[in-house]
Amino acid sequence: MPALRLTVFILLFCGTCGFSRSLFSLFNHCNPPEMLVGKFCAALLDNDLNGNGIVDGSDIATDTMLYNYDEDLCVTNKWEVVTRWSCRYGFSEQYGRYMYQFFDINGDGLATAADLGSVNISDAYFLKVQYTRFKNTYCGDPKNRVTPLDKLQCDEVDKLKPEDIKCT
């Protein structure tokens, strides 16, 4: 009987055999695209929820609710952004931490509705911003090419041209 209790404890709380990770993936859409263009397109899909070709404030506000892992819809914490960007999109944890600055615009350490500005951009421009931010700003800094995942993805973005970034 103690062996059975120990096995149940390990499976439910420690997550061996990928049990808890698979449940997390099932409920939190943790199935990132393999290629970088797919990652950018997944971000576009999540940020133009009504599919009208425009990313606006209501789309972003709705998307931000998908970052909620702690049942607090009013605040998006850094770890939630890191989780979403590494799980949903397949970027490194370091890139997720980098992206948090775009959620916490006022820099108070908490991403809230007060940080959401007025946004109204085309899908094409949204993709261009994603590509440019990743290639020039993030990968342009050599310290962001250290981890194996960052190195792989930065090498991939170096081979892409803006016209390659299309979601069909």
Results as ranks from 00 to 15, higher is better:
M1N: 07
L4D: 02
L4K: 00
L4Q: 00
L6K: 10
T7Y: 01
V8H: 04
V8C: 03
F9G: 05
F9E: 05
I10A: 14
I10G: 11
I10Q: 14
L11E: 00
L12W: 07
L12E: 11
F13S: 05
C14H: 05
T16L: 14
G18K: 07
F24C: 12
S25N: 15
L26V: 06
L26D: 13
L26S: 15
F27K: 12
F27D: 14
H29V: 00
C30G: 13
N31K: 12
P32T: 01
E34Y: 08
V37M: 09
V37F: 04
V37W: 06
F40C: 05
C41V: 06
A42S: 13
A43T: 06
L49I: 12
L49N: 02
L49G: 15
G51T: 06
G51P: 05
G53D: 08
I54F: 07
V55M: 10
G57Q: 15
G57H: 12
G57P: 01
I60C: 15
T62E: 13
T62H: 09
D63H: 12
T64L: 12
Y69G: 11
E71I: 13
L73T: 10
C74M: 12
E80C: 13
V81E: 06
V81G: 11
T83M: 10
R84H: 09
S86E: 03
S86R: 04
R88Y: 01
R88Q: 08
G90I: 01
F91I: 00
Q94D: 06
G96K: 01
R97I: 00
Y98A: 08
Q101D: 06
F102S: 14
F102E: 00
D108H: 00
G109A: 04
L110D: 01
L110H: 07
T112K: 02
A113N: 12
A114P: 01
A114Y: 05
D115E: 08
I121D: 01
D123Q: 12
D123I: 06
D123R: 05
D123P: 08
A124D: 10
F126M: 01
F126T: 03
V129P: 02
V129Q: 04
Q130G: 08
Y131C: 04
R133T: 06
N136C: 04
N136L: 10
T137H: 15
T137S: 15
G140S: 07
P142E: 06
N144F: 10
V146Y: 02
V146P: 09
T147R: 01
L149K: 02
D150G: 04
K151I: 00
Q153L: 13
C154G: 13
D155T: 14
D155A: 15
E156G: 04
D158P: 10
D158F: 08
K159P: 11
K159M: 15
L160I: 07
D164G: 11
I165M: 10
C167T: 00
